[in-house]
Amino acid sequence: MADDRQSLDSLLPVVYQELRKLAAAYLRRERPGQTLQPTALVHEAYLRLMKDKPNRWQNRAHFCAIAAHSMRQILIERARARGALKRGGARPRITLDEGLVGGSEVSTDLLALDEAMERLAALDAGQARLVELRFFGGLTVEETAEAMNISPATVKRHWTVARAWLARELESAPNA
């Protein structure tokens, strides 16, 4: 775990830089052909870090897991910081871009999502990790399957139920 901690520290700046690149590309609404593919994030960061410290990463799957986790960490920290700035420390509510999270049916609060994922981890740690890889890491079903060493069909099944559960948790969460 101490080793992971170290890996995470060296990874954060790289992941952050990639995150910005991706977010900017998305906001420019480049046509799909020109968009950086979701995995490019992880891939590029991977290549860059492999050049620096080839032995730190056990394998690509390990790397993906850590990259996704650090992205989650970055986003949650930022959501907190921003909320604290806005309301003087009250519980922040960061609504995600609505056009992307299913129209207006479900409005997603990043911090509420993070808390719900913690609760999900208590029920099924694998499902929580899977959501982390898919949503925060942006991995496809196939890549997630590879990273978790399970079949794509299983990934889909877990994803469906975890997503339904999280959506319900967020809907019932108090919006205070």
Binding site: L22, A23, Y26, L27, R82, L100, L110, V131, F135, L166
Partner: peptide
Amino acid sequence: RSGAFLDAPAWEAAAHLIL
């Protein structure tokens, strides 16, 4: 009714937050 919930990766859903 969850629609496209969480289908887009976080950096798109939270692009404003990142930038």
